[in-house]
Design a protein around this nucleic acid. Structure first.
Lengths: 123, 123
DNA sequence: GGGTCATTTCAACAGTTCTTGAGTATTTGA
DNA sequence: TCAAATACTCAAGAACTGTTGAAATGACCC
């Protein structure tokens, strides 16, 4: 990952709707989810979603695949991992404190079920 | 780190000058560097730098301390680590593939000396 | 106190991003 | 071939971001 790719990816991620998109798509894995369902879940208009999907796909953070009349979108997990790796290793030069704070346990929010379940961090 | 803080921090980082700022400040550690020196290194006007520093400080990514007529700025490494941890654990739900790609070795660029030294990734 | 250095604030402007709504393509099934 | 379902493109306008230069603030030294 070079610096300009990382910057593009960061700019794509630095938006509430698109961060929500990642959260929504992540549990769907490589199969992804169809555009219509994403729009409904995130409360976006069709064209609004298209705008955000294009930004994410342009940055390489998601991939799309057509299946019949649906287009499925899935997170490119290798790309997100590379971005985080770039920030950690290149921008922060592998700093130990950054690494430790990054590795610290956080509460996990699992977006399944009628309400999001919150699992507190284990100590 | 909650979601709105993470978003603010991402927006602060999603800019070429401010990413360069992190790279420049990281090796200086908690002592940081004075604004004038930063402006010179990054080729920014005084007011331009001030704008970017305010964005970063507002997001909690850097801290400042006055020493005489200089103001020193240093990266808040715990904050950057928390941001990366949030992206990895909350947004990506600790996904194994993301984690692996993040942990993959990259070449390390050490910004000391007359020319930046590049240390290729060990295999 | 007066001069100077270092930094910040402010206002104006240009450029970019986001939202909205209307219209357009593509696929499916009757 | 037609209508319905799904998703995309485009243009206009609002909102936000970044740059510039001038003025203001704060700290130091004589």
């Amino acid at each position: 990952m070079d610096q300009s790719k990382a910057l593009t990816a960061l700019q794509a991620l630095a938006n509430a709707q698109r961060l929500a998109l990642v959260r929504h798509l992540m549990p769907a894995g490589d199969g992804g989810r169809p555009a219509g369902q994403i729009a409904q879940t995130l409360g976006l208009s069709a064209s609004g979603l298209s705008f955000h999907l294009a930004a994410m796909e342009g940055a390489g953070l998601i991939r799309s695949r057509r299946d019949g009349r649906h287009v499925f979108y899935a997170v490119d997990r290798a790309m997100i991992g590379s971005l985080l790796g770039h920030l950690l290793n290149d921008c922060c030069m592998g700093d130990a404190q950054v690494r430790d704070c990054c590795a610290a346990r956080h509460e996990l929010i699992i977006p399944y079920g009628p309400e999001d379940m919150v699992i507190p961090a284990a100590e």
